[in-house]
Design a protein around this nucleic acid. Structure first.
Lengths: 329, 329
DNA sequence: GTAGCTTTGGAAAACGTTTTCAATCTGGCG
DNA sequence: CGCCAGATTGAAAACGTTTTCCAAAGCTAC
């Protein structure tokens, strides 16, 4: 069996309190005994039981991350930004995902709740206030890429709307007047924000949306939407896709249909995923700072856990950046 | 504060033993009290403290996953295969990564150790036997994509070597005689296996390796290696890259150098990452069944945890598949 | 030599839960 | 009416640790 503090005490010939004092340095102990205890602990390979510690109300040492889904390089970027910092600190990371409905979401939340010192939640489906209410009020909590209004809530978002706005402006400045939009999944925060940015961008130039097509962030739906785009009258001269994956689908579908990008039709995406610079033509896109978002979220969470945040809550909005490449050249 | 079983007992006017019995259904309790206890627990929102449970030697309910690194769609595929099953079962997932040296590796291991019921370890740097020895003998453990010889160890690997072998044969059958290999990071298991498969494939057709170039699985090094390939004499007619990312780098570098793929030079990769079918030309590659590997690993681990595996240890080798596309056409 | 202080070590409480053990109560049967 | 079996119930131990509280012992200063 795994050695307990009692085994160490017996081997060193002292009481368990003495062992605890030596190992935690919490009080002075005779040098000789101190050495004996250290030796015994080493030989046995003793490590305190984390469950016992956490029962005593000490820190658990873990951080939970709740994501809408795990797949996708965007999310692994986010995670790796977090992981770097937690593993530096000797903290562990609990990751969960795939919450389609609120029952499942709450179940996952309950599983995480008492096992971590704090939680990072990326919720594209439920606003931060709702999720906040599902959790104990004293649990440190940071939201990422989540709809939030309450200024008391700590959150880190990327400027989805502003990025989409500027991308739309970019297309308009290129002379496009008939711009279609390939939407993301209904009811998800980032998709809605990007759509809003698009509409506002058009409105800022006195234009009306001509075509807003349903899609769900996947390659497949991007490809499947091509016929609808080609059949539209007037036919759009540019398509702004709500994410890179669906833009890639467009690229593929358009090439198969014999159209040239950007000569016949311009394409833009959002994410700046790894492949967007590799695609042919390379994809004009809005860069989402996912790694930075992960890093900022974990930093703010740790500050909140350690109480060193000085009570600074509120929303941080990370800037997004236009990356102009061939697909709109 | 969070309600304890004592709060529930007080509210229901019974002892804590009765509460425990009702909530776990471990013994018969008067119907009326049963109802009172249920009501009290509901009103208070009572949930057992996981630390207390785990202190009693009950299952912790978690599974740990140790990866060489988190970034990359390959790894998120692996993770999502695992996550699907664990979250179905109400288990949680602890993820860690980035172990460069063995001190860091062991530190991460220690952090995970007592907090999970079992561990999935993907170790490209240390063989399974070594890692096994670092952990308590009774911890359920499954390796993935890790060098292993001991038949007592449970492991799931993809057939890296066989896939590389068949890819090499494919290139030879296409008439290539001067085939270069773009290596993965030194000393990592999958990279070495792929290199071995390549060499064996050449040997099977009486060929000698002409050019084995150092690289590290990244886009950048693939691109940077292009000059060395073009300068080689005799110049290779095909390059087999140890993974897709470095193959994409090659594609980019070759295009910039004005060469056509596959007419001037053929390219093949390993992984079948999402973009390999999107690249232009689309990339011939060896499909690595990462999601399947995650699923198999977690299934075998859960069987071991639940003791329903009937003592079946040993290595499962998942087949890899040649995916022929334009880059070698 | 003794009062009072410091240093040291051990016993025990506390954290939240399950489980074992013993006690009480109920009803049936002789 | 007395007794036994079974059904309910509660008290207490156990899990591994930190920490508080006491007691003992050594020391200083008078």
């Amino acid at each position: 069996m795994v050695p307990t503090i009692r085994d160490v005490a017996k081997r060193a010939g002292v009481s368990i309190s003495t062992v605890s004092r030596v190992l935690n340095g919490s009080a002075s102990v005779h040098e000789e005994k101190k050495a004996r205890v250290r030796a015994a602990a080493d030989e046995l390979g003793y490590r305190p039981n984390p469950a016992a510690l956490s029962l005593l109300g000490q820190r658990v040492g873990g951080v939970g991350v709740l994501l809408p889904y795990i797949a996708g390089d965007i999310f692994s970027e986010f995670l790796s930004g977090i992981d770097r910092i937690t593993s530096q600190q000797g903290r562990f990371l609990m990751v969960s995902s795939s919450h389609r409905n609120d029952a499942e979401f709450r179940a996952v939340l309950r599983g995480l709740e008492r096992r971590v010192d704090g939680l990072i939640v990326m919720s594209t489906e439920f606003p931060a206030e709702t999720v906040r209410a599902w959790l104990p009020a004293d649990l440190p909590l940071v939201f990422a890429n989540t709809e939030v209004h309450d200024p008391e809530i700590t959150a880190v978002n990327a400027d989805n709307r502003g990025g989409a706005f500027r991308m739309t402006e970019h297309l308009v400045e290129r002379g496009h007047r008939q711009i279609a939009f390939l939407k993301g999944p209904d009811g998800t925060y980032d998709a809605e924000e990007r759509l809003t940015g698009f509409r506002e961008g058009l409105a800022a130039h006195g234009l009306e949306p001509v075509l807003e097509l349903p899609c769900d962030f996947t390659l497949e739906c991007g490809e499947d939407t091509v016929p609808a785009i080609l059949a539209a009258d007037p036919r759009p001269t540019a398509v702004f896709a709500a994410n890179d994956d669906s833009a890639f689908g467009l690229l593929t579908g358009l090439r198969e249909a014999g159209l040239r990008v950007p000569e016949d039709i311009a394409i833009a995406g959002v994410d700046d995923s790894k492949f967007s610079q590799l695609a042919i033509p390379s994809l004009t896109t809005v860069r989402m700072p996912m790694r930075q978002m992960g890093r900022t979220a974990i930093e703010r969470l740790l500050a909140e856990i350690d109480g060193t945040n000085g009570g600074s809550h509120g929303l941080t909005v990370l800037p997004t950046e236009l990356v102009l490449r061939q697909s709109t050249a």
